[in-house]
Design a protein around this nucleic acid. Structure first.
Length: 134
RNA sequence: AUGGCAAAACGUUCUAUCGCUGUACCGAUGAGAGUCGGAACGGAGGAAAGUCCGGGCAACACAGAGCAUCCUGCUUCCUAACGGGAAGGCGCCGUACCAGCCGGCGACAGCAAGUGCCACAGAAAAAAUACCGCCGCGAUUUAUCGGGGUAAGGGUGAAAACGUGAGGUAAGAGCUCACGGCAUUACCGGGCGACCGGGAUGACGGUAAACCUCAGGAGUUGAAAAACCAAAUAGGUUCUGAAUUUAAAGCUGCUCGCUUUUAUAUGUUGUUCGCAACAUGGUCAGAAUGGGUAGGUUGUUAAAGUUUGGCAGCAAUGUCAAAAUAAGAUUAAUGAUAGAAAUUGCCCUUCGGGGCAACACAGAACCCGGCUUAUAGCUUUGCUGCUGGU
RNA sequence: GGAAAUGUAGCUCAACGGUUAGAGCAACACCCUUAUACGGUGCCGGUUACAGGUUCAAGUCCUGUUAUUUCCA
């Protein structure tokens, strides 16, 4: 189940705007995570977007490389560490993982940080749960 | 042999596992649309980059001509077109000078259409107002002064009135002559032409990447252009029907409604001045209509395309024939991990090989033709001067 | 994806193609004051973003590159 299809990507402009304006966020270097509970009935637990700022990385090649590594790390570990928890709690999320590192990290580092990020996110969501937004 | 310059070709490959995306296919389900599963095939570049030019395509505008603005600028040809390319001319560079060949570079129309500018220095920077000097003339205090001629010499400058020699002259001066350079040319010859050779002429400083002149060209906006689709939401316009009318305050959580006060929605007509009739406007309900927003489809990848071969041409290129399952994303795919090989460098070597390291620049966004810039490594070709004279 | 503008001293800006690129603030030194501030005097600081070209001469003109900023949504 290491898939990553179109439905799992966050493409809607309104949702994106809502995410960045109203969503809560935290830092887990080299990622900046923004998340919000999703109201709409989406077919997957999480819709995610991976922005990499053009200001920091001038060349498209670098941005592509970072995005692809992030996506790979997310794809391989989301099922065990994120989906299982969310499915139990029956929560749906919109998520944004911005890369704000100053240098391009190698894949093993990014993978480790991604795991740490998942743990942190689950904790926060669990704390938020008592007063759901909808 | 090595280095440099120029041009051209290439610019990693294979396997396994897990993914992403497109195409058409099979199975299950379903009335259908679709959904789920399976296996097959395709999936970044020489610059995809910069956006510097030129097109295609689309929308809007548009009688014709001129002015302004901007761009281009040796000639001929190629091309859909170009500021691109090819061939040629001319100039410059490649060992002092000259000639020829070879190679490289050149925004290379016109200062002899007009105007402007040429700091400082210098007498003078362009119609020579003569500082020193040179040569006459006049005056005399015999060493100077006055008023002329003179661009040969001095010095200044990036640049000084074409250079050298002779004649000529009071001294000088293209003033005259010879040789040489430069420019122009309504002349002659060669070349399609740029231009070349000869003759004639002389207005013989530089600057047009100074204004400008001449010749040629340019409508504007860009796929976030543009066309179509069926829904939802708020509002616009029109039609039909219903009720009947405004403003302020209060009652109730809100709406409806009720109460009080004031005026009696606007206009026209009539009027007994109390009001009545008609029209318009407003409220509610329904229908139609065209536009906007977000979404989807088309545009959108079979093309002035790629590869190979024949023919025409010096070449750019054209033409004919054949071949190929020929990227198509849209918050944006083409990836990750592991292993092997190739290439290059270094070290060791029993010359069989082994170990370590490196592997550039860089990512399609409607599509083409160029240019420019970045680029590890690797391959090929040419040149890096040759000949003759002084 | 498309379209513009600007790079000059540590900062903010000037400068007809022509002398050694200038002004204010800042920094430094001295004076003033018991001392600091204010004030005064002096001084320091520039590859005019980079490369090439035109010109006798380029910060200025032309071409290419690079960096920054802005606009269209």
């Amino acid at each position: 189940m290491y898939t990553f299809k179109k439905e799992e990507r966050l493409c809607n402009k309104r949702l994106l705007e809502k995410l960045f304006h109203k969503g809560s966020s935290f830092l887990c270097y080299p990622y900046r995570v923004s998340w919000i509970m999703a109201e709409a009935e989406q077919p997957v637990p999480v819709q995610v977007v991976f922005p990499v700022p053009k200001k920091r990385y001038k060349h498209a090649v670098d941005r592509n490389l970072i995005r692809r590594r992030m996506r790979e790390a997310y794809r391989l570990h989301k099922q065990q560490n994120l989906y299982s928890f969310l499915n139990e709690a029956n929560i749906k999320l919109s998520l944004s993982l911005s890369y704000i590192g100053k240098e391009i990290e190698p894949y093993p580092v990014m993978e480790k940080k991604m795991l740490k990020l998942f743990v942190q996110l689950c904790d926060l969501v669990a704390n938020e749960k008592p007063q759901p937004i909808n």
